[in-house]
Design a protein around this nucleic acid. Structure first.
Length: 559
RNA sequence: AACUCCAUGGUGUAACGGUAGCACAACAGAUUUUGGUUCUGUUUGUCAAGGUUCGAAUCCUUGUGGAGUUGCCA
């Protein structure tokens, strides 16, 4: 009913505005129609945000409808995961959960209707004969020898097909349209095939199943969907979609509108390829944090809000674009910077002994949990004589703009004192094993030294005696090239060998032991990290969601 | 070489015949107890050629480039 006014809208929302103001429709009904044959990925999120988003904005509704017309590929496992992912993204279909299989009876009647009208026939040709008869892109097809069977004969045959009197694949029901049509979809498309497959909902009730084309538009019409939004590859199907609406006594006239699917660089999006990554163990399951699946992004620690914002930002057009992963990550940082609690964690520890700090002594430090959000409150942790710092926060022979710790140099320990490196301890092989430093009692948190001296470097740390151990998994892009789909060789040739790095000896601030599974926090100066589902009190596991912007890395890379 | 669709900075996306704007990225600077955040500034664009018009990213023509379609998949 309401037409939200905003500065600019995509072409689909413009069409909806027109349909509302012209009186063509007085409410808006959309639908998200996945086939339950795999896990949802971020490309589906684009469609979900579009369809459910429009329903919210226009005060309409969005149906969740499972397009389950090909039982050999489908399973309830996928139905469940799809529901979970949509809800996690923050959308709700309310009472409007549907299955195309709910319409099998209706569709069967409509098929008989077409037969009665002389607009459908049973074809006995083999698979190959049908294919050959279809012609190709530049040559028209030829009529099937069975094309002119009488309506009576067709009806008997079709009923017999349903009763199971014929073998799988031996006959099909086809629409009688035009074998010379320039659009191949209109060359007498197949409506029903015989397939004795157990359906996850209808069981063994049917041995004939309707095709996508004979199902989708009619399902939309039955649900009074006003705008049926799908991706570009269905563009050529629209004439057929409309042919069924025109030739069947459907209760409403939905309109199909196509938009471009989401592409992201440095990853693949096709179900087939994602399946291959899982089956060949290039990743650890559908929810591997490197996967572009919704479940993978969730496990990676991406907030649903960031995914929704991303979908809003990339917009809806018919242009086949490839979006930059950096845009997604930027949105993830935005949300997490605002929401994530801060902690300190050392991934690659180097022990530091503060030689002038009394043995056996410790003190409690208080600081904010999140500087961006005062409501997050305070946190407390301990400082003591032995601490860990990040190994790459020390260099024995530093380059010019290196602000961190080096021999004789002084840095600020984050939330604590200045320390100065006095001595580097090495093992027999020359590896640095320990640093001996002194601290300045004049420089606790919140105070600068009375002599006015300053330091440029701030280094995070954890108290050795108060730390907890953890494994931290660092994730990088799954592929090393921007478009693995079009790169030389197969996409598997371009897997990034360093997409996963395990840091098995990480030392965490003690407070991190209490963070629940699934929460994403910031490890100060390092990035955002999410408690993995495999994490336990005995064996803590964190996944890096995304690193912080790192301008030092850029400086370093240049030199 | 059929039909359909698409073309705006590096990547996306606005501008609906009237100043080409925004985000990300990049670069420079300021602030900073996160080399984070925040703030300021800079660079970069209408696929090409014609036409219509006072005026074209926008309308028309042609070309070029890209995508989809020859499943009893969706």
């Amino acid at each position: 009913m309401s037409v939200p006014s905003s500065p600019s809208k995509d072409f689909i929302r413009e069409i909806i505005d027109e349909d509302l103001s012209s009186g063509k429709h007085d409410s808006t009904v959309t639908r998200f129609p996945p086939e339950p044959n795999g896990y949802l990925h971020i490309g589906h999120a684009k469609s979900i945000c579009l369809n459910f988003g429009i329903a919210e904005e226009y005060g309409g509704r969005c149906h969740l409808r499972f397009d389950d017309t090909n039982p050999s590929k489908e399973d309830v496992e996928y139905v469940d995961s799809i529901k979970e992912d949509i809800q996690w993204l923050g959308f709700d279909w309310g009472d409007h959960l549907y299955f195309a299989s709910d319409y099998f009876d209706k569709l069967y009647k409509w098929a008989k209707h077409l037969i009665d009208e002389g607009k459908a026939y049973v074809d006995d040709q083999t698979f190959d004969e049908i294919r050959k008869g279809r012609g190709d892109l530049t040559t028209p097809g030829t009529d099937s020898p069975f094309r002119d069977r009488s309506a009576e004969e067709n009806l008997e045959l079709f009923k017999a097909m349903k009763k199971g009197e014929f073998d799988d694949g031996s006959k099909v029901l086809r629409a009688k349209i035009d074998m010379a049509h320039p659009n191949l979809n209109m060359r007498d498309p197949i409506l029903y095939r015989i397939a004795r497959a157990h359906h996850h909902r209808t069981g063994d009730e049917w041995c004939i199943y309707p095709m996508y084309d004979f199902t989708h538009g009619q399902s939309d019409a039955l649900e009074y969907v006003t705008h049926s939004l799908c991706t570009l590859e269905f563009e050529n199907h629209r004439p057929l979609y409309e042919w069924f609406l025109d030739n069947l006594p459907v209760p409403s006239q939905p309109r199909q509108i196509e938009f471009s699917r989401l592409n992201l660089n440095y990853t693949v999006m096709s179900k087939r390829k994602l399946l291959q990554l899982v089956e060949d163990n290039h990743v650890n399951g559908w929810d591997d944090p490197r996967m572009p699946t919704i479940s993978g992004l969730r496990r990676r620690g991406y907030p649903p809000e960031a995914i929704r914002n991303f979908c809003k930002t990339i917009g809806i057009t018919k242009f086949q674009s490839t979006n930059d992963m950096a845009l997604l990550e930027s949105g993830v940082r935005d949300v997490l910077n605002r929401d994530a609690r801060r902690f300190m964690a050392v991934l690659d520890p180097l022990k530091v002994v503060i030689t002038n700090y009394p043995e056996g002594q410790s003190e409690e430090i208080e600081t904010v949990a999140n500087p961006e959000n005062p409501d997050a409150g305070m946190r407390h942790f301990s400082f003591s004589r032995e601490i860990y710092i990040e190994r790459d926060d020390f260099m024995e022979d530093p380059p010019k703009k290196y602000f961190r710790l080096s021999p004789g140099n002084e840095v600020r320990l984050r939330n604590a004192y200045f320390i100065k490196c006095e001595e580097v301890i090495k093992d027999a092989d020359g590896n640095i094993t320990e640093l001996h430093c002194t601290y300045d009692t004049d420089t606790p948190r919140g105070e600068n030294p009375s002599d006015g001296r300053k330091v440029k470097g701030v280094v995070h740390w954890v108290s050795a005696a108060h730390s907890v151990d953890a494994t931290v998994r660092l994730y990088d892009r799954l592929f090393s090239v921007e478009s693995p789909d079009s790169a030389e060789g197969t996409f598997l040739d371009h897997l990034n060998p360093d997409s996963l790095t395990e840091m098995p000896n990480a030392k965490l601030e003690g407070n991190l032991a209490g963070v629940p599974n699934g929460e994403t926090v910031q490890f100060e100066r390092l990035g955002y990290f999410c408690v993995d589902k495999e994490s336990s009190a005995e064996n803590r596991v964190f996944n890096r969601t995304v690193g912080l912007r790192d301008s030092w890395a850029k400086v370093k890379a240049k030199s």
